[in-house]
Write a protein that binds this DNA or RNA. Structure first.
Length: 298
DNA sequence: CCGCGTCAAGTTCAT
DNA sequence: ATGAACTTGACGCGG
């Protein structure tokens, strides 16, 4: 089992991912930002390696405005060596990385311009992972998108538009249940058609359950079947509800006992768990420590 | 130098 | 019809 966190670190020097406003995105500015961000990424990977954090989500902001026409920099060529060097470090430390396009990447939109931008954005994400030289078990996690008052049609459109992505995106893509529209059952249905893996998101399923009689553990077992050998071991998302904020907001940190209970109920420990939590690496470290302590007491 | 309004993008929901 | 929320911070203008 590996535990990981998303996009950024707390309290680790020289690891910030920077950006700028689009109106300031000159070629020089973008090159400086990319160069800076790659250096930050390398520092994050070093930190993760040193601390046995085996899972990490790379920020989509690594290359600012990567799929926007303002950015015409052939970054994958210019920084080829930097990417390969970081990729070596990822492999040397047995780290599994991933990426996760945000809410604006909507593959199932009825508007073709929106779909075109989503396709470009997916190609960007896979180009980052390809440039690192990491295998197909380093995934791109995607939500299904909008419903547009007709879920069946919208799901069909996702399946149709999926056929438009390149093979290098196809081999990496994984779909995830969300907190509002597409529950785990919907996502499994699409995944079965496309033969792609499913990331089970526990908090999203708590909020937007497909079947209240089924537990998270039940769904994790079903989702396991969608992960083939070449996809690497099964991955899930784990987060806890912030006590005061609205439904779906992530907690500041992971409650260790609550997590340990969940961890204990997992039938199989050959699973990767991505935390979505405000304090990022801090909670990842705390949980790793906690599990270690508990084990040494047995 | 500091504070706060604004930021590429899409969809949904509240008003 | 219009605007805010979303995950939520960080950029950068204006004082």
């Amino acid at each position: 089992m590996r535990i990981g966190y998303a996009c950024l670190t707390v309290g680790v020097p020289d690891t910030a991912i920077k950006s700028c406003l689009v109106k300031n995105a000159s070629g020089t500015r973008l090159r400086n930002l990319i160069s800076h961000n790659l250096n930050s990424l390398e520092n994050i990977i070093s930190y993760n390696g040193k601390n046995n954090i085996g899972l990490f989500r790379i920020s989509s902001g690594l290359i600012p405005f990567a799929s926007h026409p303002i950015n015409q920099i052939p970054w994958w060529e210019i920084y080829k060596n930097e990417f390969l060097q970081i990729g070596q470090k990822i492999k040397a430390n047995n780290i599994r990385v991933s990426m996760h396009p945000g809410q604006y990447t909507v593959l199932n939109s009825p508007f073709d311009e929106v779909v075109a931008r989503a396709l470009a954005d997916l190609e960007y994400h896979s180009l980052v992972l390809d440039s690192l030289g990491v295998g197909a078990d380093h995934k791109i996690i995607l939500h299904i998108g909008g419903v547009y008052n007709n879920k069946k049609t919208a799901m069909k459109r996702f399946i149709i538009n999926f056929k438009r992505v390149s093979d290098s995106v196809k081999r990496r893509i994984v779909i995830e249940n969300d907190d509002k529209s597409y529950n785990i059952k919907d996502v499994l249905e699409i995944a079965s058609d496309l033969k792609i893996p499913v990331v089970f998101d526990k908090l999203h399923n708590d909020i937007n359950p497909a079947d209240k009689r089924k537990s998270a553990i039940d769904w994790i077992k079903v989702c396991r079947k969608t992960w083939r050998q070449k996809d690497g071991i099964q991955k899930i998302h784990y987060s806890q509800q912030h006590p005061d904020k609205k439904t779906g907001s992530h907690s500041e940190s992971i409650n260790l006992d609550e997590f340990y209970e969940f961890y204990g109920s997992l039938k199989r420990k050959d699973i990767d768990i991505m935390f979505e939590v405000k304090d990022k690496n801090i909670s990842a470290l705390n949980c790793l420590d906690y599990i270690k302590q508990k084990k040494s007491r047995d």
